[in-house]
Amino acid sequence: MGEILKMNTIHDYHEFLEVETLNPLVSVLDFSKIPPIRHSRINFGFYTIFLKDINCGDLRYGRGVYDYQEGTLVFIAPGQVVGVDDDGTRVQGKGWALLFHPDLLHGTLLGKKMKEYTFFSYEANEALHMSDREREIVINCFLGIREELEHAIDKHSRSIITANIEVFLNHCVRFYDRQFITRKDVNKDILTRFEDLLVNYFDSEAPEIYGLPSVAYCADKLHFSANYFGDLIKKETGKSAQECIQLTVINQVKERFADLDKSVSEVAYEMGFKYPHHLSRLFKKVVGCSPNEYRAALAG
């Protein structure tokens, strides 16, 4: 595996691209106007959004393969590594990029909201695929930020730039909502696989060995990042992935409670609870009564 280039600052990346730095904390790049660059794997020390104006080709989602012709937005959080090993060739870039350093956000409203933009933790195969109209909106956002960068920095620059970035990110939230909706059939397939995964898990010895399944475990088994999987489940069901797991747990517990020869503690350990009172607490929260009260009702 080739060398990973560490780009701690936007200026570091600009030097690599051989372009001028207008603002050390934020940048908008049009790759069609940048000299050809070598392939590289880069550890970015700042938020990076690439708008790739290429045919994305066949992309796999769940069990389906989809051909996207539109532009693609890829979101990279500080510390993530992205790129291709250097093979010595130079390529002419095409598309755009928005870069902004975490230092830009300190003390701003956007800084407090960044954790809400979960798509920065999506994997590359969970990128945002845009229509022509959405692409036009994105480029207009980029141009608005770049226009502000071309002004001399003053006391208003930071608030104007962060406000524009927030508008752009909010558009991306809307676009992802649309993407989840347009993949209804794919999402239903994922929901079915999620349900099957949980049922098979509890039908095995896994709970007694590994405990209760986590959202991260389910996402990994279904080949999604935890954030994308969680957002998809929330959009499709109105419940969080954790809530869906808990409902499955409770349904499985109810089935086991039908065997009155088993104690609550035995069922708890079978299901993967570390302590029986953890089961009792969850059961009362979801069902509205204690396990003993539920079983008493079953016994008539």
Rank of each mutant, 00 (worst) to 15 (best):
M1I: 06
M1D: 10
M1F: 08
I4F: 06
I4Q: 09
L5I: 07
N8Y: 04
I10M: 11
F16S: 03
L17D: 03
E18V: 04
V26E: 01
S27M: 10
D30E: 12
D30Q: 11
F31Q: 06
S32A: 13
I34R: 01
P35S: 07
R38A: 08
R41M: 15
R41K: 15
F44N: 03
K52R: 05
G57K: 05
R63D: 13
G64D: 15
Y68D: 09
G71E: 08
L73R: 09
A77R: 15
P78D: 01
G79E: 05
Q80I: 06
R90Q: 12
R90P: 01
K94P: 01
G95Y: 12
G95S: 11
A97P: 02
L98C: 09
F100Q: 02
H101I: 13
D103S: 13
G107K: 08
T108S: 15
L109N: 12
K112N: 08
A124D: 10
A127D: 11
L128V: 05
H129D: 01
H129W: 10
M130N: 05
S131I: 03
I137C: 12
G144V: 08
I145K: 08
E148D: 09
E148I: 15
L149G: 04
R158M: 10
S159H: 05
I160E: 12
T162C: 09
A163V: 02
N164C: 09
V167A: 13
F168A: 08
L169D: 03
H171M: 08
H171Q: 12
H171V: 01
C172R: 03
Y176R: 10
R178G: 04
Q179N: 11
F180K: 09
I181E: 15
K184G: 01
D185G: 07
K188H: 13
D189C: 07
I190T: 10
T192H: 10
D196W: 11
L197F: 14
Y201L: 03
A206G: 00
E208Y: 06
I209F: 11
I209K: 09
G211T: 06
S214C: 09
A216Y: 05
Y217M: 14
L222Y: 07
H223W: 03
S225W: 01
S225I: 05
N227T: 10
F229N: 02
F229C: 04
D231F: 02
I233L: 14
K239F: 14
K239S: 12
A241E: 00
Q246V: 00
V253Q: 01
K254H: 04
D259F: 04
L260Q: 10
K262L: 15
E266V: 11
Y269K: 11
Y269A: 03
Y269F: 15
M271W: 00
K274L: 11
Y275V: 09
Y275M: 09
P276N: 04
H278P: 01
L279E: 03
K284N: 13
K284H: 12
K285R: 15
C289S: 06
Y294G: 10
L298W: 08
